[in-house]
């Protein structure tokens, strides 16, 4: 790795890190697992920056590696901290719209992955499909189902509200 390429990595890291972390957090629903996986992914990117930076979307490479590593990171945390159940809860104390956080966290894994990549990272359908190893049609279907489920949860119908007496 040349000294001249490091600034490019630095800029890439600062521009993408918050979104990548939040996207992986959506998938893992665990801060420590997300932090470990994302840090490892950026370290790997830095080690191979000449190759990674030459790709069409380096962020897609990073998110793919991070998501792949998230599972093993979470396993490692569970081994080291068997009582770490509390860490798996998203910190909602400082967010203005916790209902959305809870609703997204309650989605099935594949739908969370698609929401994370398509909405939080902003990857297109093709990039999302490549990152997750699924077809573009599957990405579209999962996103459609995810948004429908979120809409249903976040926008109760008038009948539902009446039925609940609220």
């Amino acid at each position: 790795m040349s000294e001249e390429r490091s600034p490019a990595f630095h800029e890439f890291f600062e521009a993408t890190y918050p979104a990548v972390y939040r996207a992986v957090l959506v998938v893992t629903r665990n801060r420590q697992a997300a932090e470990d996986a994302v840090a490892n992914a950026y370290l790997r990117a830095l080690e191979r920056w000449d190759a990674v930076s030459g790709q069409e979307k380096p962020i897609a490479w990073v998110i793919r590696v991070a998501l792949n590593d998230a599972v093993s990171s979470w396993r490692r945390i569970q081994r080291l901290l068997p009582l770490a159940a509390g860490m798996s809860i998203l910190d909602e104390s400082r967010v203005a719209d916790p209902d959305v956080i809870r609703a997204v966290a309650a989605l099935p894994l594949r739908q969370r992955q698609v929401v994370a990549l398509r909405i939080l990272i902003g990857l297109d359908t093709r990039g999302t499909a490549l990152s997750l190893g699924i077809t573009e049609g599957a990405v579209t279907a999962h996103l459609h189902r995810a948004l429908a489920r979120l809409r249903q949860r976040l926008e109760p119908t008038p009948n539902t509200r009446n039925h609940d007496g609220r």
Binding site: R22, D97, I101
Partner: peptide, 8 residues
Amino acid sequence: IRSAFADI
């Protein structure tokens, strides 16, 4: 969704 997660 983006706005909510930006607070994290």
